[in-house]
């Protein structure tokens, strides 16, 4: 298998903040790679560096075996990019946008564009400024796939779309994937979408790629353990593969990666009354893996005493 996307120690700072830190990313031909991370984790900056829109402070990017900084137009024809928000020229009609984009490509599948536009019931005479977010996404997709690209890079393509449009968009994307084993890298906040489409995921946390593995493997690796104690739960836990822990009074919640014999022994050494092992779906696994020490605040409908107790649990001063 050849690497279609390859970065080597890619690093970017904004002022003194390191937004992408020594990123080594490899995506192989035919893979659908879900690129995940919380807001500000460095996903968009990474994608912009992949596309040459942002210059890295250090490191290199190769797409289809060619350095992005010196990529020839012929290679660029084989790569499609849909930026976040589906930027298009609002003054154009859909027909004008198709004609404008077509002018740049030697290989343009006009039948495919027509099929996609017809499928989504988009008139060629509609002005882009009058389209909904979903329709703009559909036009972007049609324009992106028309040159029959080998590699598609999509920055949060379903952002702002309603559930039905998102499902339609993903169905189209899946159909596109099935054509000639294309490679797709896409970032998203919607884990359900990623779970449906991606066969491998990467998770960025504070600019660092913390996870790079098959989607199923990640989901199966992250476990939540709820330890129940007869008295107060211990504050500190020393356990290999521990991502996070929360003391909830007499309970201790642990998020562990790759739960195995060594971890079981370490957990049992705490002598809890019971141990509950909870399997997580991708969304839960992602949330637990990335949210850090802060927990959500499910407090608003609770009585004051419980409120105080919960705040105490979170360790918020």
């Amino acid at each position: 298998m050849t690497d279609v996307i390859r970065t080597f120690r890619l690093t970017k700072h904004y002022d003194t903040r390191r937004v992408v830190d020594c990123l080594n990313l490899q995506v192989q031909r035919g893979q659908v790679y879900g690129f995940l991370g919380r807001n500000g984790a460095g996903k968009s900056t990474t994608i912009k560096m992949l596309m040459g829109m942002v210059q890295p402070d250090s490191g290199e990017v190769e797409l289809l075996g060619e350095k992005v900084s010196a990529m020839c137009p012929k290679t660029r024809e084989r790569i499609a990019y849909i930026a976040e928000g589906h930027p298009l020229y609002n003054w154009m009609t859909i027909g004008e946008a198709v004609r404008f984009t077509r002018a740049f490509y030697s290989n343009w599948n006009h039948t495919l564009v027509e099929q996609i536009l017809d499928h989504f019931e988009l008139s060629r005479k509609q002005k882009l400024r009058r389209l909904s977010n979903g329709q703009r996404a559909q036009v972007s997709l049609a324009l992106a796939v028309a040159p029959e690209p080998e590699l598609l890079i999509l920055d949060d393509p379903t952002l702002g779309l309603d559930t039905v449009v998102r499902r339609d968009f993903l169905e189209s994307l899946i159909q596109i994937i099935h054509r000639k084993g294309r490679t797709i890298l896409f970032s998203s906040h919607i884990l359900g979408d990623v779970e449906r489409v991606a066969d491998r995921i990467g998770i960025m946390v504070d600019g660092v790629l913390r996870v790079d593995c098959p989607t199923d493997h990640f989901r199966e690796s992250v476990k939540k353990l709820v330890l129940d104690f007869p008295g107060p739960a211990p504050e500190a836990v020393d356990c290999p593969g521990l991502v996070n822990s929360w003391n909830l009074g007499s309970q201790l919640e642990l998020i562990l990666v790759g739960y195995d014999e060594a971890q079981r022994t370490a957990v049992e050494a705490l002598q809890p009354r019971s141990i509950e092992i909870i399997d997580l779906n991708l969304e839960e696994a992602f949330i637990e893996y990335t949210r850090g020490r802060k927990r959500s605040l499910p407090l608003f409908a609770m009585e004051e005493s419980r409120h105080d107790q919960s705040i105490g649990d979170q360790g918020i001063a």
Binding site: K48, M53, E77, P87
Partner: peptide, 9 residues
Amino acid sequence: TYYFLLWRP
């Protein structure tokens, strides 16, 4: 729109 324009070949 630079993201749309500047990725053209």
